[in-house]
C-alpha cells in the first residue's frame, strides 16, 4: 500500500512539474529551483509534513522533498542551536546529498564523455 501511495504522490508532483514546463515559459532548471524553494516554504508553514507522512518516498524523493529536508533541518537547528543552528541546520541535512552529487558528478565526468544525439 505504501508503494502505491509513493507512486501516486510522486507521480502527481511530477505532473505539476510537467504542466509548468509545457504550459509556461519556465525551463526545467526554473522548475528545479521553484520546487526546492516551494518545498522549504511548504514545510515551514506545516503543509508538507502531512504529505510526507502520507506519501513517504513519493514526497521526499522529488525535489520539494529536498526542500523539506532543508527546512526541517533549519528549524531543528534553530530549536537546538539558536541563530547558529538556523544557519547550519538546513545545509547539514542536505549535506549528504550535495556531497554525493559533487563526488559522483565529478567521477562520472572523469570516466564518461558526452555522447552525441540522433
Amino acid at each position: 500500500m505504501e508503494y502505491i501511495r509513493a507512486f501516486v504522490v510522486g507521480g502527481v508532483i511530477c505532473i505539476i512539474g510537467q504542466l509548468l514546463i509545457d504550459g509556461t515559459k519556465l525551463t526545467s532548471a526554473h522548475v528545479l529551483v521553484l520546487f526546492v524553494t516551494l518545498g522549504v516554504v511548504l514545510t515551514a508553514i506545516g503543509v508538507y509534513e502531512p504529505i510526507v507522512k502520507y506519501g513517504g518516498a513519493g514526497a521526499t524523493v522529488p525535489l520539494p522533498g529536498f526542500g523539506y529536508a532543508l527546512a526541517k533541518g533549519a528549524i531543528k537547528g534553530a530549536k537546538e542551536g539558536g541563530i547558529l543552528g538556523a544557519f547550519t541546520g538546513g545545509v547539514e541535512s542536505g549535506a549528504g546529498g550535495v556531497a554525493a552529487a559533487v563526488v559522483f558528478g565529478y567521477l562520472m565526468a572523469v570516466i564518461f564523455n558526452p555522447k552525441t544525439k540522433n
Binding site: I21, S28, P114, K115, T116, K117
Partner: peptide, 18 residues
C-alpha cells in the same frame, strides 16, 4: 555542428530535458 551549438546556446547534451 549540433553538439557545439547545443552546448553554446542551450543545454549540455546529457541533460534529460524535452
Amino acid at each position: 555542428h549540433y553538439s557545439s551549438a547545443e552546448r553554446q546556446y542551450r543545454f549540455p547534451l546529457e541533460l534529460g530535458n524535452q
